[in-house]
Design a binder for these strands. Structure first.
Length: 685
RNA sequence: GGCUAGGUAGCUCAGACGGUUAGAGCGCGGCACUCAUAAUGCUGAGGUCGGCGGUUCGAUUCCGCCCCUAGCCA
């Protein structure tokens, strides 16, 4: 049955270039769209730039241009990057357009009219120099918990504790450096809790249909059990975005109108291409038409796409997503992308050095349906692409094309021998599951099947040894049979690789003088068909080009400071020798236990409060419950703790240090004790 | 700490509803071949399937505990 699907990838933010991390998602989505089309379905694949928000407004000011100009430039670059990576969007729009404004306002008004929006006065920091309210990320100051300096207004990167900007000590505006003042402002909130029953139902249906991954469902259950909070959807002027229709000076928060961009982009495309827009977007019409809407997103934005988004759509009478497919992040050489290591690679930089199909294949060969992160290991990248694409697949055509041209004028045999035909039919059957594997985003599995057939084909060619037949005039017919079949098998493999490496397969199709737009097009082998001359389809990856790309990525960053303390976790010996300086970094102190108790809901934890003398009182969680089942007996004892360990946010509260104990863990743990005469707060040396 | 996922050959991973010698690709060694972009084929080495217990005639596969890694905790 042919399906009609609207597919999207998450909207890249207009305030930065496309990098190879983005490509995981756009390749995943593009392969899916292409494969589904080749399986006979209709897929409309759209995307857009996410163009609103304070960062864009401020950057435009800094560069002395209008935000409109900034986002237009970005859009041009983004579109070029995707196009050159062969990401085949039917339409690529921007959230800063009339279609998006109309839809955003419609959603807002629908929610307002059904009383799902409330307004509240909020106290917020305001930059008196710039005359604007400051988003949390634009305020810095000293963490109220661990007193680390220069921490953002929403959370501390040192201790992980979250708070509100007004909790910061000595706050300052990142924009002007001025000390922000608190100011009241009315904000609008969507009462997300109102939608819990609807969301639960949506979730249950998606789970049933496979539209949400198990991990995502689990995560959602957790969010439900924690309770859904209202969502602040307005921001005060000046802001680059859409103004609320009934509240001058109030703008929609960028995250409200961003996903609406999916619908806006499709609306524009539908108008342009003469499609029935409502059949894809309006709840009733979509239900009747049986269309689907599928989103590909990264795991960091799961919350927005599985809670806010379906709720907003539902509230406005729009269709909800049929599926939200979540993928993991890209690491490079086993670590987060890093500008200083040259592994933060922009799409454009990659394209200047390497063929996009290399990366598409590598990612596809790694991609599965889970949220697991993917690693771009350059050594593996080089080896896999060279071996699989050049050595296995392209080689089949390369090694047999010569026979066909030299002895048979480029013409494949007219009558395929039955035993060879059997080989072809077997291969068709073996690759058949790939269609479903593509649909289920099991690309790695599909690529294994394809390469397995390529392996067998090469082995079969070796067994038949057509080069020997070529030397024997009497074996011409057999040679024709074998070479023709090899080319046919190559064509079959090419069709299944087409969603992944479309440009390279297009070259293969030039050689074959035959194109396939559906997987079914290659069910039958070609007979009596004339081939074009063979040209190399792709070259092996030259490791020098990878290196050049890394060097370029390093130099394109503007003089970042040397990473003095980058931990090389993977390469360090298990117990490296340390110097006295390292030891001196530890601030070990004596603490007198003033409170010690079980923690509700924790299997292993005890909660301590320590009197630490001049350091005051400290709360520390320690996983030693198994060893000390009667915690109250510890009160009054002197223990040793690390006083300068970065505080750590736990579910049960902040743990401000670590208490030392000896043993293998579990019940075998003994507190390190200090003579009762020791003074609380005394330094341990 | 909670939740989730994962820990299987040097690397990337597959697999087993528990049952003879645990698989693939890449990489590495040897041999063969010479049609092919030094591509291909055959073959070899390499794994106490994270650890400890339990259930069982039998567990890497099921159960429990523990250790480690990653992500999430809005």
């Amino acid at each position: 049955m042919s399906r009609r699907i609207l597919a999207t990838c998450a909207l890249p933010y207009a305030n930065g270039p496309i990098h190879i991390g983005h490509m995981v998602e756009h390749v995943q989505g593009d392969v899916w769209a292409r494969a589904m089309r080749m399986a006979g379905h209709t897929v409309h694949f759209v995307c857009a730039d996410d163009a609103h928000g304070t960062p864009i407004m401020l950057r435009a000011q800094r560069e002395g241009i209008t935000p409109e100009q900034l986002i237009a430039d970005s859009n041009t670059q983004h579109q070029a990057d995707f196009r050159d990576f062969h990401i085949g969007y039917d339409h690529y729009s921007s959230t800063h357009g009339e279609a998006n404004r109309a839809l955003t306002v419609r959603i807002y008004e629908a929610l307002r009219d059904t009383r799902h929006i409330e307004s509240k006065s909020v106290r917020q920091f305001y930059d008196p120099d710039k005359d604007m309210f400051l988003p949390d990320r634009f305020i810095k100051g000293e963490c109220p918990h661990c007193h680390a300096r220069d921490q953002y207004g929403d959370s501390c990167e040192v201790c992980g504790k979250t708070y509100t900007p007004t909790d910061l000590i000595e706050p300052y505006s990142v924009i002007s450096g001025a000390r922000p003042v608190e100011k009241e402002s009315v904000h609008y909130f969507v009462r997300l809790g109102d939608f819990e029953p609807m969301l639960r139902e949506w979730l249950a249906e998606r789970r049933q249909a496979g539209g949400l991954q198990v991990e995502v469902v689990n995560k959602l259950e957790e969010w439900f059990s924690d309770g859904l909070r209202s969502w602040d959807i307005s921001r005060d002027a000046p802001y680059f975005g859409f103004e609320l229709p009934d509240a001058p000076g109030k703008f929609f928060y960028v995250w409200l109108d961003a996903p609406v961009g999916y619908l806006a982009s499709f609306s524009e495309y539908a108008a342009e291409a003469g499609l029935d827009r409502d059949a894809f977007l309006e709840a009733d019409a979509a239900a009747e038409a049986g269309t689907e809407m599928v989103h590909f997103i990264g795991k960091d934005i799961t919350y927005f796409h599985t809670l806010f988004w379906p709720a907003m759509l539902h509230g406005a009478g729009l269709r909800t997503p049929s599926a939200v497919y979540v993928h993991g992040f890209l690491t490079v050489n086993g670590a987060k992308m890093s500008k200083s290591r040259g592994t933060f690679i922009n799409a454009r930089t990659y394209l200047e050095h390497l063929d996009p199909d290399y990366l598409r294949y590598y990612l596809a060969a790694l991609l599965g349906p889970t949220l697991a992160d993917l690693d771009l290991d350059f050594k593996a990248f080089e080896e896999r692409v060279n071996s699989h694409l050049v050595g296995k697949w392209a080689n089949i055509a390369s090694r047999c094309a010569g026979f066909v041209h030299k002895f048979f004028d480029g013409r494949l045999t007219d009558a395929i021998a039955p035993e060879l035909r059997q080989r072809y039919d077997d291969a068709v059957a073996r690759l058949q599951p790939c269609a479903e594997l593509f649909e289920k985003r099991e690309y790695a599995h599909a690529m294994r099947l394809v390469m397995g057939v390529a392996d067998d084909t090469n082995a079969w060619i070796a067994e038949k040894a057509p080069w020997k037949m070529a030397k024997d005039e009497s074996q011409r017919e057999q040679l024709h049979q074998v070479a023709s079949m090899a080319i046919n098998l190559f064509r079959l493999l090419s069709a299944w690789l087409k969603p992944v490496i479309p440009a390279t397969v297009a070259r293969a199709e030039t050689f074959l003088s035959s194109t396939s737009s559906q997987f079914g097009d290659v069910d039958m082998p070609l007979a009596g068909h004339v081939l074009a001359p063979f040209q190399p389809l792709l070259t092996r990856i030259d490791p020098k080009k990878i290196q050049a790309m890394i060097d370029d990525s390093k130099s394109s960053m503007n003089a970042a400071p040397a990473p003095a303390a980058t931990p090389a976790t993977a390469t360090q010996p298990a117990t490296p020798t340390i110097g006295i300086d390292d030891f001196a970094k530890l601030d070990l102190r004596v603490g007198k236990v003033t409170v010690c108790e079980h923690v509700e809901g924790a299997d292993k934890l005890l909660r301590f409060e320590l009197d630490a003398g001049e350091l005051g009182s400290r709360q520390i969680f320690s996983g030693i419950k198994a060893a000390y089942p009667e915690p109250e007996k510890l009160v009054g004892r002197n223990v040793v703790f690390i006083a300068n360990l970065a505080p750590r946010k736990m579910r049960f509260g902040l743990s401000e240090g670590m208490i030392l104990s000896a043993g293998e863990g579990g019940a075998d743990l003994k507190l390190v004790e200090v003579d009762a005469a020791a003074r609380p707060g005394a330094t341990v040396r």
